[in-house]
Design a binder for these strands. Sequence first.
DNA 1: GGCCAGCATGTACGCGCTTACATCACACCT
DNA 2: AGGTGTGATGTAAGCGCGTACATGCTGGCC
Lengths: 307, 307
Amino acid sequence: MPEVRDKIFAVAAELGWLPNAAGAALASRRTWLAGVLIPTLDHDVFAAQVNALQARLSASGITVLIGCSNYDLDEAAEQVRVMLARGIEALAVVGELQRPELFEMISARGVPYVVMYSHAPQSVHPCVGFDNHAAFSKLTRYLLDLGHRNFAVIHQPSLDNDRVLARLSGIRDALASEGLALRPQHVFEGPATFDFGRESLRKCLDTPGPRPTAIICGNDTLAIGTLIEARAMGIDVPGTLSITGFDDLPIAEFTSPPLTTMRVDNVAIGRAAADYLLTRLSQQPIVPREAFDAELIVRGSTGPAGA
Amino acid sequence: MPEVRDKIFAVAAELGWLPNAAGAALASRRTWLAGVLIPTLDHDVFAAQVNALQARLSASGITVLIGCSNYDLDEAAEQVRVMLARGIEALAVVGELQRPELFEMISARGVPYVVMYSHAPQSVHPCVGFDNHAAFSKLTRYLLDLGHRNFAVIHQPSLDNDRVLARLSGIRDALASEGLALRPQHVFEGPATFDFGRESLRKCLDTPGPRPTAIICGNDTLAIGTLIEARAMGIDVPGTLSITGFDDLPIAEFTSPPLTTMRVDNVAIGRAAADYLLTRLSQQPIVPREAFDAELIVRGSTGPAGA
DNA sequence: GGCCAGCATGTACGCGCTTACATCACACCT
DNA sequence: AGGTGTGATGTAAGCGCGTACATGCTGGCC
């Protein structure tokens, strides 16, 4: 009767007793803890991933420790250090651009890990995510096919951020394939806020020389800011200016005009990351890396160049 | 030289050693763990609070365990149980409507706790939040002063949710003070999505009898959905219909018309909750409950009735 | 020079649990 | 009837730390 144990636990719980996890961890050398390292919870994208990952792992009885790096690599490594000290048995980390010691620490302990969100084809790490470079190439390709030749980019801080860096090079490579390049004055880097999008558009249009006919934004927030400002300035979108975003926020469908953007299934990514770690934990054969796709959602904010 | 210890730790860290938290916890009877229980990470409001709380606590060397109840009271109690088993030394929980055993468990262990986000004046629990009832009374009062007499409400699920319940009664009480009441056909309860806002507006206007001149929405998402649909239906906002939200999402400023809503400083709430727990943990005298205020942000989506 | 206070150093116990192993009882087979 | 295997039950060791206490040492004082 193995259920006896459960009965004991049930009655003990009624008496207010709970097993002490520290004792159990020490004795069994199992903590049932996993970690997830993200830049911040303040982005829907990461919150959705973490939520899904946590739901999956907690269904398997494992508790997840959430660490926020605030986009700081040293902070990220430090967070992993404390997670390791707490005995995490698996780790999911957003982005593969990390201090080397981060990966060394977890490898030295034989802790299975997975890089979430980004997926560089030639990465040395197991990844569950999509190819940022390919996604932005596809997006740029779409605009090129629409006849655009003059581009601007408004993007979030690229420092230490492989996702943003990959997106930029995805754009640049697609342009280069047509012999085109970005004018430095047409590249704006700053906080991912509505205001930065607005302000960048104004600066962009104030720049002497040929105006861009398409603006690629690093995410929907920047794109919506740009859209707002374009509207305020009386600029015809997409008539004289096409604008794209990334993330497909729920609101993107309802801006005016509706925003052309790209969609990534963050819930699926979080779930897949959890599943990967779970199979690693159960010593089962390693499943091949899952590559997600960023889907282009064409709406009203983009159109033919010079229409 | 107490710094010797630090040197040892530093050199040990270089060798790849990390202190085992389970061992430390067992021996010192301190886990340096705190918990936070929220409905879901998928809402900016909670994500912001958790982010702030975590930042504050982690600065004091304490790790926070995040539990998501998915708006399920049993799940909430279960989450607290596992947190307790893991040895949390403090707990912040969103909402005071919880299974009694939840509070019993933490009280039995003498674990300090605080209710976040909501703040009922006569609550038996320490609270760090704002008064949902008062906030929606204020909002309703504002609309009444604008001459509105005919209201509709579109709100999120109220089951087991003290915040939503308090909001509804705040509206009802304010109306009652003018001898008014809500027609049941003008109250719509459903998921907090754009779509539910849109669909509710359509149903609302299809309802025979006098049409409302003002619609109070449970949050900005519902309000924006309503706004979108009103626009699509060619309804003049605020000319023939006033619409209000709650949360003051960044986008609220940029809808057309801009959304009248209420703002709550969720970062400050998270921080204050952390501070409260920290002082309780340090055995210092208990500071008085902090009551936050929901600030009314009047924008273009509201105007005089029948203007 | 001896004594003790004060500090540095060393040692061992125990936190609460898991688990491997020893013990025991029982039944079955030869 | 004795031996052996199976399963139930009991026992004790030890996981990796913190800490309280014992021990050793040094210096200052009478």
